[in-house]
């Protein structure tokens, strides 16, 4: 037996994203953001997207290009403080923004990727984040019901990958990537290094290949991946 090969082209992989799609994008700041996949998404131009991402990157980086091109209708996120354009567009009503507590966004995605309907939590229960959400009592304790999140497509950045789509992440570039890689109907991963089957040891795989549909090798890294000069 031999494991299947999922290496494809950037253009073909991203062409699966259509108008109105919900797209999860990995990354926390620069580390783990799939800048090359995002650039191609801007290039191909589907509109009215719902983007699920921890943050909105910074000016002229990553998700910011999708804001400039007007492709984003809704952003489900935790913190957009480093992107003044995202805040301005939210305040002007040009995009809808839904804020989540960071670990709760992670758990909603994990639930969606695990075949679950939602999670029960007391995070934010006494704050405005809980308004409008269903309350559930369990053993005398109050929780709010947070629904699971799934997406049509997830865009993932890996450090290493083999042709079957086994993925490994580097340092703090892991963040939301392994969670989102489980929670979408179609999962596209870009990888800095493609290694032959067997070179990524079974013990070192962070995201198992069955979760990944398309794999894109990065021949070069654009400036966006580099250390941010502040």
């Amino acid at each position: 037996m031999r494991l299947p090969d999922k290496i494809g082209t950037l253009e073909e992989s991203i062409s699966r994203i259509s108008d109105g799609a919900t797209v999860m994008i990995g990354g926390f700041g620069v580390p783990g953001t799939p800048f090359t996949l995002i650039r191609e998404l801007v290039q191909q131009g589907p509109r009215d997207l719902t983007i699920i991402k921890n943050d909105a990157n910074e000016t002229d980086m990553g998700v910011d290009h999708l804001l400039v091109s007007g492709q984003v209708k809704r952003l489900i996120t935790t913190h957009i403080g480093l992107n003044p354009r995202a805040i301005a567009m939210m305040n002007a009503g040009e995009i809808e923004v839904e804020f989540n507590a960071q670990g709760i966004l992670a758990e909603r995605i994990r639930a969606g990727g695990s075949g679950l309907g939602g999670i029960l939590t007391d995070i934010g229960i006494d704050t405005e984040l809980a308004s409008g959400k269903q309350r559930v009592e369990v053993d005398g304790k109050s929780f709010i019901l947070e629904s699971a999140l799934r997406a049509d497509v997830a865009l993932i950045h890996a450090d290493r990958a083999d042709p079957f789509g086994n993925l490994a992440y580097a340092a703090t570039a892991r963040n939301f990537n392994p969670l989102m890689a489980m929670a979408a109907t179609h999962v596209i991963a870009e990888a800095e290094t493609l290694v032959p089957l067997g070179d990524l040891h079974a013990d070192d795989v962070h995201t198992p290949g069955p979760f990944v549909d398309d794999l894109v090798g990065l021949n070069e890294l654009s400036e966006e991946y580099a250390v941010v000069q502040r």
Partner: peptide, 12 residues
Amino acid sequence: SPGAGGGIELAQ
């Protein structure tokens, strides 16, 4: 109003 990030869980 940039969003609370992880602050709510840390505080709570």
